[in-house]
Amino acid sequence: QGEGANAGTNTSATYVGSKACAKCHEEQVEAFTKNPHYGAAIDANPNGEPTVGCESCHGPGSLHVAADGDDSDPRFKTIWNLKGMKAPDVNKVCGTCHRTGEQFYWAQSAHAHNDVSCRDCHSIHDSKDPGGEKLLQATSATDLCVKCHHDKRAELVHTAHMPVREGSMTCADCHNPHGSPGPHMIRGASNNELCTTCHMDKRGPFLWEHPPVRENCVTCHMPHGSNNDKVLASKKPFLCQRCHIATRHPSTLYDGAPSDLASNRLFNRSCTNCHSQIHGSNHPSGKTFLR
C-alpha cells in the first residue's frame, strides 16, 4: 500500500484535494465522511494528508475541476468514473490499496476470474449494510451473494440449516468472497479446517477415528442446508448404510412393516440412538462409538 491509490494515472492532472470536489458533489462528500475510508491513512498521499480522499479513487482532479461542470469540455472526463469502467479496471483501482489480508488472493479468485467487479458487491457512496462497515450493496453479505448464487437462496432456507436465514451467520463467515487458497474460496485450507473453526469439539484427534469424519465433513453433511436433521446428506439410517453393511443390525432392511417402524435403529435419531460418538471417541472402549 506504499504507492497510494492514485498510482497509474495517465493524465496531466494534479491533485486538488477533496474540498474542491465538495463544491459540486456536496452530498457525496458529506456521505463520505461517514465512510470507513474517511480518515484512513494512506502512505505517500499526494496531498501530503494522511487520509484517503476523493482523488485516491477517482484520480487527480485539477482538469475536471477546471472544466467547471461543462461535460462537453474534454477535461471534464479526465476524472475516473468507476461506474463506467470495466471490472478489471475497477478492481485495479481498489487493489492499489487492498492487496493484502482479505484481498490477498483476489487476482486468483473465482470472482475475479468471472469478471466480478468490486463495485458489484460494494458501494463506496451508497452502502446498504447497517453501519456501513463493509460498504455492501445489500443489507447483508448473504443477500448479496444469493443475487447471483440463486440455488443457495433456496438451500439456505431448508428445514435443517445453519443460522444464515436468521442473520447470525453470513456466507462470508465460511467463504472469503475475495478469494482464498482453499476449495470454493472457503476460509480454510480444507473443509475440515473451516468447519472445526467453530465446531472445535469435533477436531480431535481422537483415539478412535471415524475415517470419513477425519477426511471431509461434507461426506455426510450439506452445509448449505438439507431436508435431514443435522444438515445430513441423507436420512439416517440410509446415510450410514451407504458405507456399513456389516453383520447384524447395520444392514437390516427397514421396510416399513410396523415392527420395523418400531425399531430404535430407524426411529428418532436412528443409528446415533446408540452410536452417539459418531465424530470419534476418546474412550478406551469406544471403538464402535458407543462410549
Partner: peptide
C-alpha cells in the same frame, strides 16, 4: 444405494440384497 440384509455372517448371500431409492425434494 444397495445393501444386504445379513444375519450373523458378514458374507450375506446375494439373495438378501435390497435397494433403496430415496428422493429429497425442495
Amino acid at each position: 444405494q444397495r445393501s444386504r440384509q445379513s444375519g450373523s455372517s458378514a458374507l450375506a448371500p446375494p439373495d438378501s440384497t435390497w435397494q433403496a431409492r430415496l428422493k429429497d425434494w425442495f
